[in-house]
Design a protein around this nucleic acid. Structure first.
Lengths: 223, 223
DNA sequence: CGGGACCTTGAAACACCTCAAATATGGTGG
DNA sequence: CCACCATATTTGAGGTGTTTCAAGGTCCCG
């Protein structure tokens, strides 16, 4: 697992007030209802985004209908790091969300004028890669209940109060299943198993509490 | 799957002769015997590398001994893109290999002087992320024989003659298994199944030929 | 030609998936 | 505000693919 700095890296990290203002000058706000799409896979990439509020989901679908969820995104996250002509994933809103939308071209230009901005993009790219490598490890090496702990730990670490033991699962069981490479039934049974073992408490399908942090961490741990 | 340009991107792409010379001036050659390590997970990252000849393998291991192979690397590949204080994977040689080793600090500095170089690093980072996302999709959504096709297609696409139908598998079955999140036995049976179906021919454990390119592509395809 | 590592094959166990049904949840209109 | 409905989740039973354990075969190098 990659170390998290106390202050999570955002696109604004280390910018002066003036620089922030310039960056924000590029942006316009956009609201998304739950279930709506921010952009689609294979669409020309024309904008980048900063999530202000709400939860987004990044996914990739095959022509045969199989779906893999790549990430759940939280306020502060930067979306659409330019590396292709086209987005190679779809981003949609799990809850009503607000994003700041910036034209890709202008953003790229601004990067050349603000070195810190370029530095932040590089850092965020590194974090995304680290996250994705963790996911490869989880999908390749872990059993169902360990993968569920992997998700719980991620959500707990990134919660408003990092390490919070009560976790709001805004996504559906199907989203979780597609994130972890399992079926909804297996995810449900994995939650049940963790509950029976006293590792977690389930208050409702979308609200759980971690009772045994160590057990969760141990099962979630990637390296 | 991400599109490959006709000329694969390397760290040298688009550099002038003078710039190449400067970059190469930083480097010293290093030879690795088969089985030797280039660097280890959790080691401070002090160098970056360009693979000149041979095949390297990138892997990550957990404290519990489970191992996930993240990539097989070929001549031209760039290794060690800086995004952490420490390498978060181990790189070792599958065959006798030669790399050009460059001090990270000097390399980072040179990036500031040669914009094309910075651009290349960014592009390579994007390719690595795209590769890793493909792997997530494969591990999360594909069956054993489809994962094997996923690997065969990758190796075929990146062969000296791209799209070559005869493939040299320099890695062991265990390496393949750890790359695809399977066991050696399952990998072996998957090869057997593809052979029985006439999709591939197996000349030896480490030399196969793709007989039905379409079938391999279809099974390998991620999106 | 021998030996050790690697690979394949077989049989049985297990984890996960599929199909099916029961139950719980959350939003909506009355 | 409650009853209702559609949707999401859980639970159960049976099937399938993958793993595990074990044995036999192959390849390669000394």
């Amino acid at each position: 697992m990659s170390p998290h700095s106390a202050q999570p890296l955002t696109i604004f990290s280390g910018l002066t007030a003036a620089e922030r203002k310039r960056l924000d000058g590029l942006a316009s706000s956009r609201l998304l209802d739950a279930g709506n799409y921010l952009f689609h896979q294979h669409t020309p990439s024309q904008n980048v985004y900063v999530l202000e509020s709400g939860i987004l989901m990044m996914e990739r679908s095959s022509s045969t209908g199989r779906r893999q969820v790549m990430a759940f995104m939280q306020p502060g996250n930067f979306i659409g790091i330019p590396h292709n002509q086209h987005y190679d994933y779809t981003v949609s809103a799990l809850t009503a969300s607000r994003v700041r939308e910036m034209p890709l071209k202008a953003f790229v230009q601004l990067q050349d004028e603000i070195p810190t901005l370029k530095e932040n993009v590089r850092g965020i790219g590194g974090n995304i890669l680290a996250h994705t490598l963790d996911q490869v490890f989880a999908l390749g090496q872990k059993k169902a209940h360990e993968r569920v702990c992997f998700l719980l730990k991620q959500l707990s670490d990134r919660a408003a109060i990092p390490g919070a033991s009560t976790i709001e699962l805004v996504m559906t069981r199907q989203d979780i299943a597609d994130y972890l490479g399992l079926t909804i039934e297996t995810v449900s049974r994995a939650f049940g198993k963790l509950k029976r073992e006293g590792v977690i408490a389930i208050y409702s399908a979308h609200k759980v509490e971690i009772l045994d942090t160590e057990a969760v961490e141990e099962m979630a741990l990637a390296d």
